[in-house]
Design a protein around this nucleic acid. Sequence first.
DNA 1: CGGCCGACTGTGCATCCTGCGCAGCTTCTG
DNA 2: CAGAAGCTGCGCAGGATGCACAGTCGGCCG
Lengths: 177, 177
Amino acid sequence: MADRRALDALDVALLTALREHRRAGDLELSRITGVARATVTARLERLEAAGVVTGYGPDVDVSAAGFGVQAFVTLEIAQGAIDAVTRDLEAIPGVLEAHATTGVGDVLCRVAARSHEALQQTLVDLNRSSAVVRSTSVVALSEIVPWRTLPLLETAAAPSAGRSAMRRAGAPVTPDR
Amino acid sequence: MADRRALDALDVALLTALREHRRAGDLELSRITGVARATVTARLERLEAAGVVTGYGPDVDVSAAGFGVQAFVTLEIAQGAIDAVTRDLEAIPGVLEAHATTGVGDVLCRVAARSHEALQQTLVDLNRSSAVVRSTSVVALSEIVPWRTLPLLETAAAPSAGRSAMRRAGAPVTPDR
DNA sequence: CGGCCGACTGTGCATCCTGCGCAGCTTCTG
DNA sequence: CAGAAGCTGCGCAGGATGCACAGTCGGCCG
C-alpha cells in the first residue's frame, strides 16, 4: 500500500534540501525552495503519510562506530522456513538487514562486526539456525557508491504537480512575513 | 579515520530517542534521557564530529516512492577497473549503493526500479560498462529484516562512560530552566 | 461553461526552543 | 597534586513552531 503517483519537483527539492541542511526547519526549507512555509509543512506531512518518508533517523555509520567489517551473506534455507529464519536473524544484532530473494528460497543479509573474528562468530550464529541449510558470504572491502536515493527520485520528478508551485523558481521570493 | 572508543549508554539512548521522536530538539532529548540540555548538545556534536552520525535523513522508502522492484547485482569486473566501474555506477540513478567485495574483483550493488521492465533496462545499462565482464542478479522479494543499527550499537554500549551521566536514571530530574 | 474544490500564499500570534556563554563540581589523567 | 575534561544549571535574545484564516489560482466535473 501507499505508492500512488510519483513525487513532483517540489517534493524532491524538499527532500534534497532536507538532506543537505540537516537540521533545517520548515521556515528554512521554505526559504530554500521558495514556497510558503505552510506549503512546506503540508508537503512533508503528505510525504510522511504516504510512507515515502519513513523517518529522520540519525544516519549511523556503523564503520565509524567501531564495526568496520561488513559482509553480505547468502543463505540457503529449508523450504517454507522463512518465518523461522526471520526470527533467528532478528535475534542477531550483527544483522543489519535481510531480504528474501529469488532463487532457491534464498535470503540475502548484511552483517556487520567489530573484527574478522567477530564476523566469524556472527556467521557461526547464523548457521546455528536450524533452518539454514548453507551459507556463503562475501566481505565488503569498500563502499564504491554510498547509499543514495535522490538521483533515482529525481528521474521520477514531475516538473511540478502543484498548480502554482515553484512557478517563479528563480525570482526573488518574499517569504512569510 | 574516526572510530575510536565505543559509544556509551547515553549515546545509544540519544540515538534511540532521536529515532523514535523524529523531530525532537535538544531540550526534548534532554528530558527523555535525563541529562542536561548542554550535555545532549555536546554529545551529539561529538557523535557527528566522530563521523558516527553522518546525517539526519529523511529516510526515503523507495518502494513507497514508486520503485517497488529492488535487486542485488554481483558484477565481475576487469582487473583494476574499479575506478571506471565506480564512475559508471554513479551515473546510473537506479544504483542505490555499491560495494567492492572479496572474490574475483567483484562488486555487489543494489538497484531499484519502477518495474521489472525498468529493472531489465537498468541491468542493461550496467552491462554497458566496458569494465563489467559478467553480472548476475537476484531480485529482492521482501524485506525480512528492515534496516537497523541500534541493536548492534547496544551490544557495544559501555554502561556509562561519562562520569556522572545517567547516575540517577530513574530519579525525577529537574531539567534546564 | 460556470462552479466547486483542492493547493498554495501571506499574515498574525503566543509559546517554546535554540544558540551561546558561564560558573561551579566532580572525576580522570599526567 | 594540579590540570583537563565532562556535566549541570541558568539566563537571555533572537527566532522558529504550531495553528488559524482569508484570498487566489488552476483543474475537474456536471
